[in-house]
Design a protein around this nucleic acid. Sequence first.
DNA 1: GCCGGAGAAAATGAATGCAAAATTGGGATC
DNA 2: GATCCCAATTTTGCATTCATTTTCTCCGGC
Lengths: 230, 230
Amino acid sequence: MSGGSTLTLDAATDTERPILHTQVIDELRGIITRGELAEGKRVPEAALCERLGVSRTPLREALKVLAAEGFVELRPNRGAVVVPIDGDAVAALFELKGAIEHMIGLTLPERITPAELAHIEAIHQRLKACQQRLDAPAYTLGNHAFHAALAAAIHNDAVVQTYSTLQQKILRARLAINEDPSQLARSVEEHEGIMAMLRAGAARDLAFRLEEHNRRTGEAILAQLRMTAE
Amino acid sequence: MSGGSTLTLDAATDTERPILHTQVIDELRGIITRGELAEGKRVPEAALCERLGVSRTPLREALKVLAAEGFVELRPNRGAVVVPIDGDAVAALFELKGAIEHMIGLTLPERITPAELAHIEAIHQRLKACQQRLDAPAYTLGNHAFHAALAAAIHNDAVVQTYSTLQQKILRARLAINEDPSQLARSVEEHEGIMAMLRAGAARDLAFRLEEHNRRTGEAILAQLRMTAE
DNA sequence: GCCGGAGAAAATGAATGCAAAATTGGGATC
DNA sequence: GATCCCAATTTTGCATTCATTTTCTCCGGC
């Protein structure tokens, strides 16, 4: 009944053999992020095992990790449920992210390398193209890459890790709503300002703009979320 | 994750059976935090199973969670190793924590309740007593409680969670060194200033003092760490 | 007709078993 | 004497199995 995933003989490319539980973590997190599992509803392990084509052992390992990450809640002897993501939770995430954005802005000019700056410029140009053809899904992905690259450029592993976790959780809220296309234009405009401050090395202004950008984006998502929640 | 064993109406007579993997996570994290497992050294699962008195399944589940938390690294088919905590990592943790302390200070005055303020005052008095009798271990614990209470009082779950994780990792570095008793006096003094700003509701000053307190503490720990690392 | 409980079915928590991979040790070769 | 290679042992990854616990169902009592 193995769903044909045991393909350890990959002759062509000597790719590392897939660590099952790691794959399961990512797949499950993706399923939850995309909203394909009802919040608060019980999900039997057997059903997930069949869906993912794995046995219970790696699935349960993945559930433990996702519980630690805060995506699911494990109730002893009563199964796992998807943690609901409500407005308050999203607001909290954006507030915390704002603090980190501020710090990123303050320290970025003194730490970013030319190569990193060039990389970020390239992402920025791609984003402008996405916005012009109103490709919202591509924009969302690129937007995350843009901000992740900014975070990475301060060369602080703890920040990168925490920032990534925050983005993953926020993505859940983002995918739960239909993002207003007009927000893309605002976002690009704010990115322009961010890039200008970054090129100029103006730390305090950069911090301010990053924080404001985060605040406005958060408010837009919250407004949409609370509207669709009715 | 707060050390609450209080609520949860447990049947008085029953020896409560807390889920094994949760216990294992906490025990293993404690072992790592206390430095009882050599960094970077291979640790066979069987040995840990025997030490903790559990079978491999819950142990492996715990390792997955600790890997996600960043305490161990899982190398495919080659076992888990304790992630070394070097100066750079500690510096990164304190830098991130500084950003959060700043945010806590900015928002705390407008959100803290009288009961929370009273609770924090009580912890502060306890800390002063610890300092006077130079009880460093008790001070370290109380100090964490003090700052955790401050974080909790802004009523932001994401912050509480992240802050707790940071504290746990920093604790590892703290226990790896012999903290200089003279630092206790400095800490208490800075706490006095923090409390004064908190009582006065001076958000910006509070933020500044919290961030400075974090920075100084981090520098003290880093100095000790780099000294003993020679 | 509604509620409560005993038993059955199903789901979870943990242990064991088995195959694949890695480490170790020994021996042959240079 | 050192190095390389190959088999034996150990260890890991995952599946399966066993033991509780929970949930569902059905039956009787009120």
